Simulated scan of single mutants.
Amino acid sequence: MFGDMMGMMGKLKETQKKVEDTKKRMDTVLVDESSNDGKLKVTLTANRTIKSIEIADDLLHDKEQLEDYLILTLNKAIDKATNINEAELAAVAKDGMPNIPGLDMFK
């Protein structure tokens, strides 16, 4: 019994390390998003850190339009980054969870 418990604890620690490594790796995964017309381009990490924003010159003359472009494009990029982040972390967590009867939250 204690051997099983120690094995599970070891597996949980190993999984925790993999989760931390995956979180660090998400800083290197880049997500690109553009407005439909290509006038605004943003790049984020999968951890949702903005890395770059490119704005077409004609958007600089209309503050309200630029704000709309930023909101729409950044929200799309954040959604993409969040989906990648959650999928990667869920895969690591599911793979590393010990088989505990009745505990199937990652299935």
Results as ranks from 00 to 15, higher is better:
73 T>M: 07
68 D>M: 14
96 G>I: 01
54 E>Y: 04
1 M>N: 10
54 E>R: 07
73 T>G: 07
87 A>C: 04
25 R>L: 07
26 M>T: 09
40 L>Y: 02
24 K>F: 03
76 K>S: 08
107 K>F: 03
2 F>D: 14
52 S>Q: 11
23 K>W: 06
62 D>Q: 11
88 E>H: 08
15 T>L: 03
98 P>V: 07
74 L>K: 04
103 L>N: 12
49 T>M: 13
32 D>G: 03
95 D>C: 03
44 L>N: 04
50 I>T: 11
65 Q>S: 08
89 L>K: 04
105 M>V: 14
89 L>M: 09
104 D>T: 14
36 N>S: 12
52 S>W: 06
2 F>G: 08
60 L>R: 13
71 I>C: 02
15 T>N: 10
103 L>Y: 14
66 L>R: 13
65 Q>P: 01
35 S>D: 10
62 D>R: 08
52 S>G: 10
96 G>E: 01
5 M>N: 05
93 A>M: 15
94 K>W: 10
62 D>L: 07
26 M>P: 04
101 P>A: 13
31 V>R: 00
107 K>E: 14
1 M>K: 11
74 L>T: 04
17 K>Y: 03
81 A>Q: 00
82 T>D: 06
27 D>F: 05
70 L>E: 12
94 K>V: 11
1 M>G: 13
20 E>K: 11
74 L>E: 02
69 Y>Q: 08
21 D>V: 01
100 I>Q: 13
